[in-house]
């Protein structure tokens, strides 16, 4: 399995050992993000880092778990309700003059979206590399919901993120 080193900037305490141990200079960058074009995945920087800020992540991900139709169905129903709640709260936040209500409804809309994202993640869209995601993008490119659908973005994603279920 091919791995690449990534640095978590929140954990990094700038002990700079990664700079000393990397044989390719991949860790020495102006924005502190490891240059993956130079990284060979040896893992020495991750082992040397005293703050545990570097982890090795695979370049290819295994297929996501299959979901049962009945689970997807009940999750979809819940997701729609969360979406309705989000839209309603956002509309109230946009139109009210009451500062407390505006903040509360902004919080509710954000919260509903976060729960909805979590539902979609467990409802078959965990990985951007999944067959599901690719099927959806393909469908949107072929039958865009409106004429101003950002087709280029969808096509670019399909090009950048390969489908990891094609050979399974």
């Amino acid at each position: 399995m091919e791995l690449k080193a990534v640095r978590n900037l929140r954990l990094c305490t700038k002990d700079c050992l990664c700079l000393y141990v990397c044989p390719y200079g991949a860790t020495d960058t102006e924005d502190s993000i490891i240059d993956i074009s130079k990284c060979v995945g040896c893992g020495i920087c991750a082992q040397a880092c005293p703050s545990g800020a570097i982890s090795m992540v695979p370049t290819e991900y295994p297929p996501q778990q299959n979901k049962r139709d009945d689970v997807i169905s009940v999750l979809n129903h819940l997701a729609q309700s969360k979406s309705d709640g989000e839209v309603t709260a956002r509309q109230i936040a946009a139109s009210t003059d009451k500062t407390g209500l505006k903040r509360l409804m902004t919080a509710v809309a954000k919260s509903q979206r976060l729960m909805e994202e979590d539902i979609e993640r467990e409802g078959g869209f965990m990985l951007p590399q999944s067959g599901n995601t690719h099927e959806l993008l393909m469908e949107l490119i072929e039958n865009p919901p409106t004429s101003d659908f950002p087709k280029d973005a969808a096509e670019k994603i399909m090009e950048l993120v390969p489908n990891n279920e094609e050979n399974y």
Partner: peptide, 21 residues
Amino acid sequence: TETADLKKLSAGQLAAVCSNL
């Protein structure tokens, strides 16, 4: 009555699918 229909995600759901991805 529970059957999955992936083709019928609403715009609101698709917003969350995409922001999750």
